[in-house]
Design a protein around this nucleic acid. Structure first.
Length: 481
RNA sequence: GGGGCUGUGGUGUAGCUUGGCUAGCAUUUCAGGUUUGGGGCCUGAGGACCCCGGUUCAAAUCCGGGCAGCCCCA
């Protein structure tokens, strides 16, 4: 293992006291990214961070492909002609686009893709001619570019949105498209489980969906400072885009029809949610299931027993490697304490210490990152113990995250409590009659009162916080990212 | 979209108000030695005033613009 040169000054910020500062420090010190790249809203993925996000990508590749989705790749540059096919879409992105021109052109003739539709849908129109061409189910993992004028935040709001997947599908019936949407919801839940993060799932009110779309479902995660972060949006596009891009097919009945479409996308925000949910004042805590390194071996020796210890450390390495545990040895000439700090910041789930004392006892010392517990283990039990520990850490960090998540969500039926609760860093749920008038009244409570959708999993009935009407809709309100 | 703060070796900072000293400190990096169960110690070496312009005898310091980062509010 070689230490990264950008490494590590000490982590001084406290996660609960000043989350922003903690976040900025930890993503740099742990070696995930280097944000000193001199373009606003862009950064370099360092090896540790890139492998981590690629582990996540490998997982989404796996679960997507299991359902028959095909991975494709579209160009980053989109001709204006394509962008302008959907004027409504382009109106939103005109200001936010990076414009591209050749050195001999006076005016930009292309943009960098701010999102996939204008690159993909003109091709969809060529590919779908008859119902036998449907369903068309594809995805790609790619960068998107947006000329953000707001404050950018690494991995949360960037100008180059990296390692971002987009699923786009076209179907012959509305029912089939909606079924696809259900599948997308399952994808997200598998990913949430993989990174041990709880989420809120909401339905967007129609006036907040794409013009012409029939609905949207979004997942939100809650940050330690009580702000909700949009973390994946599933768009029931209906025929809004197929009409703009002319995605038609000849159906069984011989008639030409527009396709029904779904799309969804997300990327590094998954990772942000996991880092924020599990990290602590010592650094990151990476969920074992996506960890780049699950177990780090720290050999401890004085000059005279160095070779003996290293021999044993290598033996252990080989044995764990054979069991498919992601293991590394830290062979740097550094003091053990210093290495402990490094690997804690990086969030490696298990640390294995092996030194002269352990050699004598035929044992090793295992230390859990999630709760710091230390345990001496007989060498013969090692593999079994490590397997068990990895599973338990994954379970335990979810339990912890779930508790903090639940503590942050508060139900209220008093309108005059909303502001106070938001100030306390809470996410609010309340009954809502589904009407725009009531919605606006809630929004008008103040700056930063941001209703972000209707809890999709609610089964209870109650009375609207504004009108008092009976309803089964539960509105979620928060400060949002 | 509005407001505020900041930019000094790789990193964190002192100096800036009131212009002038070899730009100080810590850490990192490199070489050597010694150490090694929670950030060791000693010796030596290397490395910085964000960019462009202005004011001035003189600019890290003052002024204007740009770029970049951070915070708060829509």
């Amino acid at each position: 293992m070689k230490k990264e040169s950008e490494q590590p000054e000490a982590l001084t910020a406290k996660k609960d006291k000043n989350f922003s500062e903690w976040y900025n420090q930890v993503i740099a010190i742990s070696g995930l990214i280097d944000k000193r790249y001199n373009v606003k809203g862009m950064f370099v993925w360092l090896n540790y961070g890139y492998e981590l996000i690629l582990n996540l990508k490998n997982y989404w590749d796996q679960i997507f492909k299991e359902t028959g989705l095909k991975e494709l790749y579209f160009p980053l540059i989109v001709p204006l002609e394509y962008a302008e096919m959907n004027d409504g879409w382009f109106k939103g992105f005109r200001e936010q686009a990076f414009w591209v021109r050749g050195s001999d052109e006076k005016k930009a003739t292309h943009i960098l893709r701010p999102t996939g539709e204008p690159a993909m849908y003109p091709m969809f129109a060529l590919w779908t001619r008859a119902y036998t061409d449907l369903p068309l189910r594809i995805y790609e993992t790619v960068s998107s570019f947006r000329y953000e004028t707001k404050h950018t935040r690494p991995l949360v709001r960037d100008r180059e949105i990296t390692v971002w997947f987009e699923i786009h599908t076209a179907h012959s019936t509305r029912e089939e498209a909606e079924k696809e949407g259900g599948l997308h919801q399952k994808f997200y839940d598998l990913i949430w489980k993989k990174i041990a993060v709880p989420r809120i799932r909401v339905e967007k009110p129609e006036w907040e969906c794409f013009p012409g779309a029939i609905g949207a479902v979004e997942d939100y995660t809650i940050m330690p400072n009580g702000k909700a972060m949009e973390n994946g949006s599933i768009n029931y596009l209906g025929q809004a885009y197929s009409k703009k891009f002319n995605i038609k097919f000849k159906d069984k009945d011989g008639k030409e029809k527009y396709a029904w479409q779904m799309c969804t996308g997300n990327g590094a925000r998954f990772l942000v949610a996991a880092l924020a949910a599990h990290g602590d004042d010592r650094g990151l805590v990476i969920p074992p299931e996506i960890a780049v390194i699950q177990l780090i071996i720290i050999p401890i020796y004085s000059t005279k027993d160095k070779s003996k210890v290293l021999k044993k450390a290598n033996e252990i390495y080989d044995r764990l490697k054979k069991e498919n545990i992601k293991v590394e040895i830290d062979l740097r000439e550094d003091r053990p304490g210093s290495k402990f700090y490094d690997w804690e910041i990086k969030g490696v789930p298990i640390r294995l210490e092996i030194g002269p004392k352990d050699l004598k006892n035929k044992s090793v010392m295992l230390v859990r990152r999630d709760n710091g517990k230390k345990e001496s283990i007989k060498e013969t039990q090692l593999v079994k113990k490590v397997d068990g520990l990895l599973e338990e850490i994954q379970r335990n960090i979810y339990k912890k995250a779930r508790k903090e998540f639940n503590d942050k969500i508060v139900f209220t039926n008093k309108l005059n409590e909303v502001n106070k609760l938001l100030d306390q860093g809470k996410v609010i749920k309340c009954f809502w009659d589904g009407e725009g008038k009531s919605y606006d009244k809630i929004k008008a409570l103040g700056e930063g009162v941001d209703p972000f959708g209707v809890d999709i999993e609610n089964k209870k009935q109650g009375r609207c916080i504004v009108s008092g009407k009976k309803t089964n809709k539960v509105l979620c309100i928060s400060n949002t990212y």
